Amino acid sequence: MPSHSVLLVEDSEFITEHVSTALESSHGFEVNAVTTGEATRTALADDAQSFDCIVSSYELPDETGIDLAASLDDASVPFVLFTGNPLEPLVDEALSAGVSAFVSKSTHATGEMNVFANRIRLAIEAHGN
């Protein structure tokens, strides 16, 4: 199974640790984590790093994940919105902003995270990365 590089944008240390550990140890992803939209843009601007997918929490300290998705220039990198909020009211705005897929924190951020990992893989494959 080839390793994919994921940029995780999440300000909760607990969730970051849980998600990173599960995705790396059980699913073979390489995970780099940042806590803000601004840190995301800085990481993406670093020519020494490239990412196959961005996974962002909806609620960030400096903006929403949807605002972050809309601000990014590189539409070739899939953007997965990771939220505990109800998805229904967010879908239209998120898709218009460039969000590729959605994962609910309440139902998919526990255990081995098989559904979460699969969503990331499918988003990467759909973008040809």
Rank of each mutant, 00 (worst) to 15 (best):
M1N: 13
S3L: 10
H4G: 05
V9N: 02
E10V: 00
E13V: 15
F14D: 12
F14A: 07
I15Y: 14
T16K: 11
E17G: 11
E17Y: 13
V19M: 10
V19L: 07
S20D: 09
T21W: 15
A22L: 06
L23A: 03
L23S: 08
S25P: 03
E30S: 07
V31A: 11
N32G: 05
A33Y: 08
V34F: 07
V34R: 11
T36H: 05
G37V: 11
G37W: 10
R41I: 05
T42F: 15
A43S: 07
L44M: 10
A48V: 05
A48E: 10
Q49E: 13
Q49I: 04
Q49W: 02
S50K: 13
V55H: 06
V55M: 12
E59W: 10
P61N: 07
L68F: 05
A69I: 02
A69E: 01
S71F: 09
L72S: 06
D74T: 09
D74A: 04
A75P: 09
S76P: 07
V77R: 01
P78Q: 01
F79L: 04
L81T: 02
F82Q: 00
N85I: 03
P89A: 06
V91Y: 00
D92F: 01
L95R: 11
S96Y: 06
F102P: 04
V103S: 09
S104V: 12
K105R: 12
H108S: 14
A109S: 15
T110I: 09
G111T: 00
E112N: 12
M113Q: 08
F116M: 08
N118I: 01
N118H: 08
R119S: 10
R119N: 02
I120N: 02
I120K: 03
R121A: 00
A123I: 05
A126S: 15
H127R: 15
H127Q: 14
H127V: 14
H127S: 14
G128C: 09
